[in-house]
């Protein structure tokens, strides 16, 4: 019954679930925020997440070292980012198309490696929950905020860091200017290509971590196509969040919390058809997007290759 939704157990459950579900979105979308603010649309996030998820899982499975797994995921993401940067910065390829290419590469390659190296679904022991002494014992709050694994904490720590880097550092100033008016940045001696390399590779690393957060922290399995479109939702969240880390956080939490809510709606046997329930996160997110009139524009140079005019 609907009133069941308002019990402490359910509210704590929704919040804890929402916070976990938002974790991979946060890593991927914050990374995408960096690359979009510098003017690069990276649609390959999903592929980077998948390869990152596999790399983290496989290295952890074979070495038993979670940190090594995480670092491999970051390395794999960085390499994918490097390739993406070469294609978009040096070859000035159409970013939407090449991004889809990298998605397909990540999807196919992670599957191929899974078939060749593992062959069947296995499990690992992932990052354990860290109970923060004292805080995690607080009823409700403790379970929601202070009994998660380290990658969940990391994702939320990333939001203020990203905000700080974008708004308070010279690097952030360069990133923003390169995404708005690369000609102006270039005329002031800012190396547009180098900044974009940096943000695309950073985006790749964070997408790799997003994948790892699924395969060695939240789920502790790897399966083909396990990201199931989360990389694309992350890209949409960057638009939703108006290219601001705090906005991305809001969007990721909103989407995830509604998803957690719809799980409870079904579990509590509230008479809503399952088809309607699973649509709720998408429908409500779109509703929020269209009703909250935002004047924020996309970075002016988004998805435009930079070339010195002749």
């Amino acid at each position: 019954m609907i009133s069941d939704l308002f019990s402490v157990t359910v509210l704590v459950g929704i919040l804890a679930s929402g916070i976990r579900l938002a974790t991979p979105y946060l890593y991927a979308a914050i990374g995408e925020t960096f690359s979009q603010r510098s003017g690069v649309l990276n649609l390959g996030v999903e592929g980077q997440m998948l390869l990152g998820a596999f790399a983290a899982f496989y290295v952890t499975l074979t070495t038993g070292n979670l940190w090594l797994g995480l670092m491999t995921a970051m390395l794999v993401g960085a390499l994918m980012g490097l390739a993406m940067a070469y294609v978009t910065v040096n070859l000035q390829a159409q970013q939407g198309i090449s991004g889809i290419g990298f998605y397909l590469f990540g999807l196919g390659m992670s599957d191929l490696l899974f078939q060749k190296l593992m062959g069947t679904v296995e499990t690992v022991k992932g990052f354990p929950k860290i109970h923060i002494p004292g805080l995690s014992d607080i009823p409700g709050i403790g379970e929601i905020f202070f009994s998660q694994n380290i990658l969940v904490y990391g994702a939320y720590l990333l939001v203020p860091i990203a905000w700080f880097v974008l708004n308070k550092t010279t690097l952030g100033l360069k990133i923003r200017s390169v995404g708005e008016n690369p000609d102006a940045a270039d005329s002031l001696g800012v190396n547009v290509g180098r900044i974009r390399y940096f943000t695309i590779i950073l985006g790749g690393i964070l997408s790799g971590v997003a994948g790892a957060s699924l395969s060695i922290a939240l789920l502790n399995v790897f399966q083909q196509n396990m990201t199931s479109g989360q990389g694309f939702i992350a890209v949409a969240l960057v638009y939703f969040g108006a290219w601001r880390p705090t906005g991305v956080l809001g969007g990721a939490l909103l989407f995830s919390l509604i998803n957690a809510l719809q799980l409870w709606v079904q579990v509590l046997n509230i008479p809503v058809p399952s088809e309607i329930a699973v649509m709720m996160p998408y429908v409500l997110t779109i509703l929020v997007l269209v009703t909250s009139v935002s004047k924020v524009r996309a970075p002016s140079a988004l998805s435009k290759p930079f070339e010195r005019e002749n």
């Binding site: 010279t170 923003r176 940045a185």
Partner: peptide, 30 residues
Amino acid sequence: MIHQHFMLVQTLTVAENVALGLPSSRGALT
């Protein structure tokens, strides 16, 4: 050089436009 088409980033402030590309007295921070 003052370009015919201004080399300014519309979404940044005057100070940010001036500081762009220059080393900061606070290192990595603006």
